[in-house]
Amino acid sequence: MGKRIGLFFGSFNPVHVGHLIIANYMAHYTTLDEVWFVVSPQNPFKTKKSLANMYDRLEMVNLAIKDSDRLRASDIEFSLPQPSYTIDTLVYLKERYPDHDFVLIMGEDNLAGFQKWKNADIILRDYNILVYPRPSYKAGELIAHPAVTRTDTPQMELSSTAIRKAIQAGQSVQFMTPDTVIDFIEKKGLYSR
């Protein structure tokens, strides 16, 4: 029996409560059955040096969602050619899981620049996109596209960058990310230098 799977792409460097709230909202308040956190090995637009090891980032997602029955962590892009483009991942997932219906999850900020993506027109033709609002961002004209649905996901002004900076400065990040993730970061010495 096929499921509707929401694909939430990101570096998750580290995963935080903002990501978790978005994923949980999408899994419970939309037509999706599950949400998969697709951990990116390397975003074509980000430099590699600021990224924690991809297996550490995957493990932090697994630790953060271990109590959820509708959220999954996916390392699907780890084995695909680098840098990974969303269209290639979608085609690969469709071949591997032909019964599932895959839906993209993205923020308004990403939707605004979506036309620059590789094969954006094909993605819009073949896939639905669930958009979550981002404070101080405009979604642009694509928000009116029939493949795009804007959701009422709660908004949060929290970023992985802010968490990394706080850790570097020796400040508390309690409640910004689950305790299991904080323990893992401390044990591994991530982001502290």
Rank of each mutant, 00 (worst) to 15 (best):
T151Y: 03
G6W: 01
D69T: 11
V91R: 15
D99M: 09
P83A: 08
Q168M: 14
R4F: 09
V38P: 02
Q42K: 13
Y191Q: 09
G189T: 05
H28E: 15
I105M: 04
L20R: 01
Q174E: 14
D126K: 14
E59Y: 10
D121P: 10
R125Q: 13
R125C: 07
Y137E: 11
L190P: 02
A166F: 08
R57T: 00
S172K: 06
R57L: 02
F37C: 02
M1V: 14
Q155A: 08
L124K: 03
T31H: 11
E77Q: 06
L190S: 02
D75L: 11
L58E: 06
K188N: 07
P178L: 06
Q115L: 11
N119E: 14
T153K: 03
G113T: 15
P135V: 10
N53R: 13
K66A: 14
H16D: 10
Q42M: 13
E186H: 13
R72A: 03
A169I: 05
K165P: 07
E108A: 10
M26C: 07
I76F: 15
I122N: 09
Y29N: 11
L51N: 05
R4E: 06
L20N: 01
V35I: 04
K187R: 15
A112C: 11
I122P: 09
T153C: 15
V15T: 00
N43F: 07
R72Q: 05
Q155E: 10
H28Y: 13
V181Y: 03
T149E: 10
F12C: 01
T47Q: 15
D126R: 04
H19C: 04
R134N: 05
M1H: 15
Y25M: 04
